[in-house]
Simulated scan of single mutants.
Amino acid sequence: MLEEAAPNWRALRIHESSPANRGISVILARDCPGYVGSHYFPDHERGASVNGWRNEDIECQTFADAEFDLVVSLDVMEHVFNPEAAFKEIFRTLKPGGYYVCTFPIQRSQVQALGVRASISGGHITHHKEPEYHGNPINHEGALVTVDYGYSIHQLIAEWVPFEVRISRFSDREHGILGEYTEVVVCQKPGRPPPMSMRSQWVRRALRTVLKRLFG
C-alpha cells in the first residue's frame, strides 16, 4: 500500500508527530532514512533525543523552515492547547508543495469550527467541559482532549495558514469504516509541487494508507 501511495517515499524527509507502535508508523521508521518521529516530553529539552524519540512540542518546534516533504499526525490535534500555533509550525516546516496528512475527530453535530474543552495558563489547566482522555503511546494516564472540532474546521485551518485543505469522509462497509470520525484531512503547502509520480494518485492512496493504519 505504501509503495502505491508514494513510490519514492523512502527518499522523502518525513516527520510524524506522536507515532504509534504499530501500522504505518513502524513501516516509516524502519524503511525511510529521512523519517523523524517525535513525542513531547515537557520536562526535557526541546529538540533533544528522549527514549529514542525527538522531543518536540508540535506548537513550538525546533525544526528548520521547509525541512520536510511530508508531515503526518494521527489523532493528535485534539490534544493540543493551541491548534493554530501547531498548524502554523507544520506549515513552516513543510517544503513548498509538501503535504500534511492528519486525522482528528470532527463532531458532525457541532457547527462552530472549534470548541475549547481545556485551556492552559502558567502551567495550570482549566477544564471548560468534563475531562476526556484518549490513549497515549508514551503515558499510561492518557492524553487529555483539549479541543472539539466542528464541521467548518477546514475553513478555519485555511484562515490560520494558506494551506489548501481537503477533508474526505468515508463509508466503506468492506473494510468496516462506518459511522463517525472517519475523516482524513490533507493539507498542501502552496509552491513547487512534488514529483508527478506523487501527485494525483498520491493523495487518494495516502488516504487509504491512513485509513488502513487507523482501522486495520
Rank of each mutant, 00 (worst) to 15 (best):
W9F: 11
W9I: 09
W9S: 03
A11R: 14
A11W: 15
L12E: 01
R13G: 10
R13C: 13
I14G: 08
E16C: 08
E16L: 05
S18G: 11
S18E: 07
A20P: 02
N21D: 15
G23E: 12
S25C: 02
S25H: 04
I27A: 13
R30E: 13
C32R: 11
C32T: 13
C32G: 10
P33W: 01
G34V: 05
V36E: 07
G37K: 02
G37Y: 03
S38F: 04
S38T: 10
H39Q: 15
H39C: 13
H39A: 08
H39W: 13
Y40V: 09
H44D: 13
E45Q: 07
R46A: 12
G47V: 05
A48L: 06
A48F: 04
N51L: 10
N51V: 04
G52C: 04
W53Y: 13
R54T: 15
R54V: 15
R54N: 14
N55L: 10
E56T: 10
I58H: 01
I58V: 15
E59N: 07
C60L: 12
Q61T: 11
A64L: 12
A64H: 14
D65W: 07
A66E: 14
E67Y: 02
E67M: 05
E67K: 02
E67Q: 09
F68G: 01
L70W: 02
V71R: 00
V71Y: 11
V72T: 07
S73W: 00
V76C: 07
V80T: 02
F81S: 06
F81P: 04
N82F: 02
N82L: 07
N82R: 03
A85M: 02
A86M: 05
A86Q: 01
K88Y: 08
E89C: 09
T93R: 05
L94S: 11
G97S: 06
G98S: 09
Y99Q: 08
V101W: 07
V101S: 06
I106A: 08
I106H: 00
Q107V: 12
Q107G: 15
Q110K: 03
A113I: 05
A113S: 15
L114E: 15
R117N: 09
R117T: 12
S119H: 02
G122F: 06
H124K: 13
T126V: 13
H127K: 09
H127I: 12
H127D: 06
Y133T: 03
H134R: 11
H134V: 05
G135L: 10
G135S: 13
N136G: 02
P137Q: 08
I138N: 09
N139I: 00
H140L: 08
E141G: 12
E141A: 12
G142S: 13
V145I: 14
T146F: 01
T146C: 15
Y149D: 03
Y149M: 15
G150P: 01
G150E: 06
Y151G: 05
Y151P: 11
S152P: 14
